[in-house]
Design a protein around this nucleic acid. Sequence first.
DNA 1: ATGCAATCTCAAGCTGACTTGAGGTCAAGC
DNA 2: GCTTGACCTCAAGTCAGCTTGAGATTGCAT
Lengths: 146, 146
Amino acid sequence: MNRNDLIPIGTLARRTGLAVSAIRYYEERGLLQSVRTGGNQRRFLRSDIRRLSFVLIAQKLGLGLAEIEQALGTLPQGRTPTVLDWQKISRALRGEIDRRIQLLTRTRNKLDECIGCGCLSLDRCALYNKEDRAGAAGPGPRFVLD
Amino acid sequence: MNRNDLIPIGTLARRTGLAVSAIRYYEERGLLQSVRTGGNQRRFLRSDIRRLSFVLIAQKLGLGLAEIEQALGTLPQGRTPTVLDWQKISRALRGEIDRRIQLLTRTRNKLDECIGCGCLSLDRCALYNKEDRAGAAGPGPRFVLD
DNA sequence: ATGCAATCTCAAGCTGACTTGAGGTCAAGC
DNA sequence: GCTTGACCTCAAGTCAGCTTGAGATTGCAT
């Protein structure tokens, strides 16, 4: 609650490695909040460093900002989260990682079968299933491993 | 070498589940080649079905079209690849999958440590390393797990 | 021979995740 | 009190990976 707990955007940028513009963009997207000084400058909570760390890790896993925002929704907004808050959300992320590892492992197994025959065919190996993508319409970047 | 070995774009689209427009785009990007009929219509090799299957699988792994194009470079262009050609390139893909699984596993281990203390901090856990991204400049979608 | 689906080209649009630039304000040190 | 750097707001640009649309042509089936 101390005044020292509020940091300007540049400091947050240095601490996270993010560009200032990126942080502003995240705020606009609703991934974090800030208060303003008398002179209209943003001030963030120190704990937002962690918040942004989470964003970065989740992005590495291929999550989109919308999904990350959802996950962050379980954290208290505008208040420093507790250790327990972070443990909960970290576990959710862990689940996501597990799922991806499983998917990759399955893909690898299928590919191994295919290497044997050298076919790499949709029909025969079912490595790549047409039906999967039927629903996933729309433009924009493809989603990684579903 | 038979005339039957040449298929129009719509057939290729149906066989791969891709949109016709996507195939045209891939050709423009140099991921495959086609010959033209007298009336300027594209004709593809039957083996391009496999070629595109490979593209789709590699995309699922998060590879960009540029990298996929590189990988495909080891295949003969405009000629039906042999079983051995496919085996070679499949193994390369398998290596890529292995690398990703390892990376995910490491990330998960680190996250596990972090769940213990609930910190999720850049400095303390080094789950997310600033230096990693220093070189990865430029706009556009972030690369998944490096 | 004709009709209709499939194909062609080319330009423009779109999503996600940002960056860049212009033009202006704030604040801390000297 | 003045300079210098950090900060502000828009609007517009960028990149990947496509899609959409307009307007014209082709080619198989009857």
